[in-house]
Amino acid sequence: MLLRAARLPDLPALLDVQEAGAVLALHSIFPQDTHPFPRADLERRWAAEIAHPDIDVHVIERIPGRIEGFVAIRGAELLHFGTAVDTWGTGLAAGAHAEIVAKLEAPAFLRVFEENHRARRFYEKMGWRRTAWQSRSSFAPHPVLLRYELDLDL
Results as ranks from 00 to 15, higher is better:
D56C: 07
I55S: 05
D56W: 09
Q134P: 00
P12G: 11
E77T: 10
A51F: 09
R121S: 08
S138L: 11
L78Y: 12
H58I: 01
P12Y: 15
E61L: 09
L145D: 11
L152I: 12
F70K: 12
G75T: 03
W128F: 09
H97G: 02
A47I: 03
A25D: 08
E43A: 15
P141M: 08
E149V: 14
I50Q: 13
D56R: 15
R62Q: 12
V17S: 01
Q134A: 06
H52N: 06
V144S: 02
T34D: 08
H142A: 04
L145P: 01
F37L: 05
L79I: 11
R136D: 01
G69E: 07
E19A: 09
R130A: 11
V101S: 08
R62K: 07
A140C: 01
L154P: 00
Q32Y: 04
A108I: 03
D10I: 03
L14K: 04
G82K: 08
L154E: 08
G65R: 15
L8W: 00
F81G: 01
G89M: 07
L92E: 06
D10R: 08
R121W: 09
G21T: 03
S28H: 14
A106Y: 06
W88R: 05
Q134L: 08
L24H: 09
Y148F: 14
A48P: 02
L24R: 12
L2R: 07
R136H: 13
D86P: 00
V85H: 08
F113L: 14
R147I: 01
